[in-house]
Amino acid sequence: MDNKDKYKKVAYYPGCALEGTAHAYDSSTREVGKALGLELEEVENWNCCGAMEVKNVDTKLQTYLSSRVLSIAANEMKHDVVMAPCNGCYHNLKKAEYDLAEDDASVEVVEKLSTKAGHETYKAGQIETIHALDWIKKAVGEEELEKKIENSLQGLKVANYYGCMYTRPRHIFPEKDQGEGSESIDKPHYMDDLLAVAGAENVEFPLKTACCGGAHTLSDSDMSTKLVLNILQAAEASGAEVIATECPTCHSGLEMHQVRAEKELGIKTNVKIMYFTQLLGVALGMSKRKVSIHENVSDGSKLLKEKGIG
């Protein structure tokens, strides 16, 4: 089997954000997949990955919650690969995989809870967890993607923002930093690669993995606003018209605190925020509506129209 084939049909774990605030990320991911001839099969009866909240209270319970998702995808749906577009979900599934490979106490808790819940216990190595960026890179690749671009993003200056959880902590991502073709921990580039193929001009952006303040957003909104405003200003200083995102927490944080910075601090920034799947969808010839750009708080429809894109 061609290695690409392994990724053409995968289990899909949207997680809670993609059913709520990040609906646009969910719909644009599904549409881009369809346009590229890829197939997603949603994990049946999936549950919360444990997010930040459970992990904070009981890290092993979070491992169990993520392991249940992995177990359904691997044991019940017989998939080799599960794709999670949300950085938080992706991170937690990877963490569970690591814990179950390295920590006997986690294995014990997961076995106990899985038995009690009445499903097969997930064992490390049964399934591969990937991000939406990995999915398109591995199942399609730049060469094939380029052939399908109908509406180049040429002239659009983009700052690619990956956030903190896509690469950290590095020990749960053993496949990264493995030489040519692999993703980089220090300087991630998969989103840059895909959007460059779609015609975008990627700007040099020093804060691509910097904290968006997501964890502070309820407890210390002022600090989150400062962190976000700084990211927005850095993107604008880099010459970017759009910040491309691949994490629903980062995305909604950037959008909400952009509004809040103007309201509370009187500082307005104009850079637009869009999911990379929305930009790819437009480049693949879809309408802005089909990839739900109208659902973004930071609506980039006008900018794309002015640029003659879509």
């Binding site: 992990k55 904070n56 903190c164 910097a210 997501g214 964890a215 210390d220």
Partner: peptide, 20 residues
């Protein structure tokens, strides 16, 4: 950004051990 990140990590009481 470094200043905000570090000072943010030091400002919250008992926010816990998750993420940042």
């Amino acid at each position: 950004h470094l200043l905000y990140f570090v000072s943010g990590k030091m400002i919250e009481n008992e926010l816990g051990g998750f993420c940042c």
